[in-house]
Amino acid sequence: MAQEKMELLKGTLDMLILKVVAAGPIHGYAISQRIQQISRDFFQVPQGSLYPALHRLEEQDWLEAQWKDTSTGREAKFYALTRKGRKQLETEVSNWERLSDAVALILRTAE
């Protein structure tokens, strides 16, 4: 833990979860690992945010859950993207791109 980790920005966690789940059914622990890994340990997802977010997304029908055996034989709750969730992910990604483009534009030009 030499590298300083950063808590996720508010509102981006949902999008990152949807994006990770879009790759295929995955359980909660693996989602937090994936986000941490892909961001090269930059982001950490506290369980206290992850599980409420997962349940909220499931409640909104963006995720659907199923209990399945893991490779170790233990049963775990796997989340998968619904059709509605996929649409939501597309919206959030395009919003995010517009936002970050705009921020970058200002940083580059407003000198």
Partner: peptide, 14 residues
Amino acid sequence: RCLDSELQFHLEQQ
């Protein structure tokens, strides 16, 4: 119970 075992699973994995 589902919520319990989901969180328990996470803890065990960790």
